Simulated scan of single mutants.
Amino acid sequence: MHRKGSRGVLVGLAWGLVACGDPNVVAEVGKRDVSKGDVSAYLEARSAREAPSATQALDALVDRSLLADEARRAGLDKDPKVQARLRTAEREVLAQALLDQRLSAATDDAKLRERHAASREKLVRREVHVRQIMVLVPPGADEVTRNRLQSRINGLYARLVSGESFEVVAREGSEDTASASRGGDLGPVLEGQVDEGFFTEAARLAKGERSRPFATAFGFHVLEAVEPVRTVEPTFEQVRGRLEAEVRRDAQEALMKELRERIPVKRHPERLEARAQGPRS
């Protein structure tokens, strides 16, 4: 009796395991499974604005799986155009996966700090701290419009010459709304963060000195220096994004060079021409 009872328990456990199935499978659609990984990939591909729940993602994946299953039944997976699109999707996913793997190793915190230490002299930049009064010029403005806006900035500059406070004129007349509320104060600005012509004009000013009206691609400006131009060395945190972009670019170029040398490639551009021309009658 004891043996039979034990055997019954084992059989029951076995059937229970079969019934439970793979814990990573969250749906079965026909003969194909939808996994937790599929749901995670779907959610990662959605924007933060959409932000579906896991249940909504599963519902959407089931619907797409039903459509895909029916497409296979209809033989669409054998269509050359569909196969080309499938190969494209596979190629892009695998290529990006390799880049993510290789480039993430090249951009860890320690390596970025090493690059920062090795390139500190190159990272040194000038910094200005100015107030501005700005009159915006719409893209593609004609000469009549530009002349009218030039007259406006000249009028604001004339108020400064007559003795009005820069902060007051900026608050009342500047069209750069972000800085106008602060009396035109832009705060410290590093070289490369703003239009080159704008920075050049700002860097010429001594503390308290004002520029004459000048133009950039964005409009007309008048500046007043809060502090004299100075040379600064950006902190690691300030240039981390720039360093990471440079490291990723260098690592990708090195990877592509390695792959081109190791993997044979044959191109047949003449066949593209033949395809573009199509069959001749």
Rank of each mutant, 00 (worst) to 15 (best):
T55N: 07
R120F: 03
P80G: 05
V128C: 06
R64Q: 04
L76M: 13
K111C: 05
A89H: 08
R120E: 08
Q83V: 11
I133C: 01
A106S: 04
L86A: 09
R72I: 15
A117D: 04
V128P: 03
D77M: 10
R46L: 01
T55K: 14
A95I: 12
L58W: 01
D79P: 07
A117Y: 04
E50P: 00
H116P: 00
V93A: 11
R113E: 09
S104L: 13
A45L: 12
S119Q: 15
R46N: 01
A71W: 13
E44V: 15
E50C: 05
E90Y: 14
K111W: 04
Q132G: 00
A95Q: 13
R113P: 06
E90Q: 14
A84S: 11
R120M: 06
A97W: 10
E70T: 09
A105G: 07
P139W: 01
L136R: 06
D79F: 10
D69T: 13
A45P: 01
V82C: 07
Q83I: 08
A45T: 05
Q132L: 03
L103W: 03
A118F: 03
M134G: 01
A54P: 02
L112A: 03
A84D: 08
A48I: 05
R102C: 10
G75L: 13
D69N: 14
E50M: 04
A118E: 10
Q56N: 10
E121R: 04
D77Y: 10
T55L: 12
Y42R: 00
R46P: 00
L94I: 15
T107D: 07
D77V: 10
P138M: 02
S119F: 04
K81Q: 15
K122M: 06
A71Q: 14
S65Q: 08
I133H: 01
D63Q: 07
A68N: 08
E44M: 14
A51I: 11
R113S: 14
Q83D: 09
R113A: 13
A97V: 06
Q83T: 12
L86D: 02
P139T: 02
H129G: 06
T55F: 11
L136A: 04
A105T: 09
S104Q: 14
E114L: 12
R85E: 08
A118T: 04
V82D: 13
E70G: 12
D100V: 05
A95M: 12
V124G: 05
E50R: 07
R49E: 12
M134Y: 02
P138F: 01
R87G: 05
R102Y: 10
I133P: 00
R64G: 03
A97Y: 10
D69Q: 11
S65W: 03
V124E: 03
V137K: 00
R49T: 10
V130L: 03
